[in-house]
Amino acid sequence: MSTVIKTTGLTKSYGDYKAVDSLDLNVGLGQIYGFLGQNGAGKTTTIRMLLGLIKPTSGDIELFGDSLRGKQKELLKRIGSIVEFSGFYENLTARENLMINARLMGVHKASALSEALEIVGLHQETKKLVGNYSLGMKQRLGIARAILHHPELLILDEPTNGLDPVGIKEIRRLIRSLADERKMTILISSHILSEVEQLADQVGILHQGRLLEEISLAELMKRNRTYMEFQVSNENKAALLLEQQFGIADYEVRGDGSLRIYSHLGQQGNLNRVFVQEGLEVTKMAISGETLEDYFVRLIGGGTIG
């Protein structure tokens, strides 16, 4: 699969603070890539760098196989985007707002505006000024503006921010149809886990400016649904045994003698035997499931997401 977005060591610093830190991002052709992270994780800063709105402190950005440096104008023409909330000229109608983009992008086909408005269901709002639009309508218009020129890559930064559940569902349906019917590659950032879970093929998890994991959703679901849980008399000694005798690093000490082990599934018998041989009292052993949300919270070291 060819790569549409590739960043290498992408960093943006403000003084000593690194908003984005050594980011290596890979978005494949035709994917819906969920860029997941808490508010302030660095998602919007990354997207702004991808779109040339802010300059990276260091690192490289490749779009469609070409470096963004020096080819920004050509590359951005192949991209449609929404960065946070969509800004519009509120004294104009939806069509007039789109007309501005169409003129500047060289889209001269008269039907292009109607087509884009129809896709997002705003084709009947011919007289209403955008200043009178609801937030949901503005977000839909933002998508219409982003797809007006038939881009190959769509970058959507928190497109469902501030929307009610019906609006969120509508935007999700729209994004899915753009990927399926128009074969667009889509990067969608969100702090809402369920949103990414329902849309994305590939997920990148960003926390405090660093990419913690880049993984397919299928793999993520498979890998993180099951774990072994032990209740022992001394969890620290148990942890030492796990590392020294089994080479297990992917575990979690949860306090009160409880341990969760995320690898070596199926070896619970061996683990139990060693614990007992080493003088530990095992009072509970179970195979349990972890929700995706639990996984993310663990990955980012606490806090909340979604």
């Binding site: 702004r48 779109l51 040339g52 709105l53 920004q72 104008k73 951005l76 023409k77 991209i79 985007s81 960065v83 909330f85 969509s86 800004g87 519009f88 000229y89 509120e90 983009n101 500047l104 992008m105 503006r145």
Partner: peptide, 14 residues
């Protein structure tokens, strides 16, 4: 103020 600059610059308009 109307948050439209980022749209113009990503069209992109020099």
């Amino acid at each position: 103020a109307e948050d439209t600059l980022k749209n113009l610059l990503t069209i992109p308009v020099p």
